[in-house]
């Protein structure tokens, strides 16, 4: 991670990166590499910006929505502040998080009782200044709320990630960055629907597949996959 940011600085220094109108503003925020060069290329500032709300749109769980974030969470969880998961749809599975380098001591999972509580919770956490990242799952039709959350994220210097169904992509959103995720045999494709300081870009393939390491091996022949009887 450190070398990624290091190389980023180098690139910026050489002036090889396009800088938009708000380049000056962007530089005020630290960006953290996503851990995937393909994804960094999509993101303004070559990584996840601080104090920003990002919307991740996908149709079903399993579309790489965690895969693209895990390197960032691993980095952030080294800080003192919390990484808060608000109402995730399934259990964030500790062995996988740990395997990705996430420090579980900083992770908290929050279960709210109602939609109102959930928004309250997201807002409180984002603006509290106690969280390095807040992950939230929101249903459709929360446009007004999203604006408030973006304000809260800036106030609390927190990275917010809103996970929403891909059918929300047509709805307006106040989130400065909106990414659409779609599963792909080799990983996930990411399209930037909206990004502050840049134009929308075509989809990119991010290699987050769990079985990549297997298929990448040459010379192994076809994997022998057999069902083994449960008896002796």
């Amino acid at each position: 991670m450190a070398t990624e940011t290091g190389s980023l600085h180098k690139l910026l220094h050489k002036g090889e990166v396009w800088r938009g109108r708000q380049a000056a503003e962007q530089l005020r925020h630290r960006c953290l590499s996503s851990g995937f060069p393909q994804l960094d290329a999509l993101l303004p500032g070559q990584g996840w910006q601080a104090s920003q709300l990002v919307e991740l749109l996908y149709s079903d769980e399993g579309s790489g929505e965690l895969g693209v974030l895990l390197p960032l969470l691993a980095e952030l969880s080294q800080q003192e502040r919390w990484v808060l998961w608000v109402d995730p749809p399934h259990i964030p599975y500790a062995p996988a998080l740990l395997g990705a380098g996430v420090n579980l001591d900083r992770v908290q999972v929050v279960r709210s009782n109602s939609r109102r509580d959930r928004l309250w919770c997201l807002e409180q956490s984002l603006k509290s200044g106690c969280c390095s990242a807040v992950l939230g799952w929101l249903p459709a039709g929360q446009e007004k709320a999203i604006r408030r959350l973006q304000v809260a994220a800036v106030e609390g210097d927190c990275r917010g990630f809103l996970f929403r169904h891909s059918r929300c992509q047509s709805q307006h959103s106040a989130a400065p960055c909106r990414l659409l995720l779609e599963p792909h045999p080799e990983g996930v494709t990411v399209s930037a629907l909206k990004r502050r300081g840049g134009w929308p870009l075509p989809p990119r393939l991010i290699p987050v597949s769990p079985v990549v390491s297997q298929t990448a091996e040459p010379d192994a022949g076809p994997a022998r996959l057999t069902l083994v009887g449960t008896s002796t």
Partner: peptide, 27 residues
Amino acid sequence: HAEDPMDLLSRLQVRLGEAAVQPVTLC
């Protein structure tokens, strides 16, 4: 004290209930 991380958790717990905020651990 606004910046104490534990305070945030207690605040959430007061509203949502004690069990609503929990860490994830490995066993």
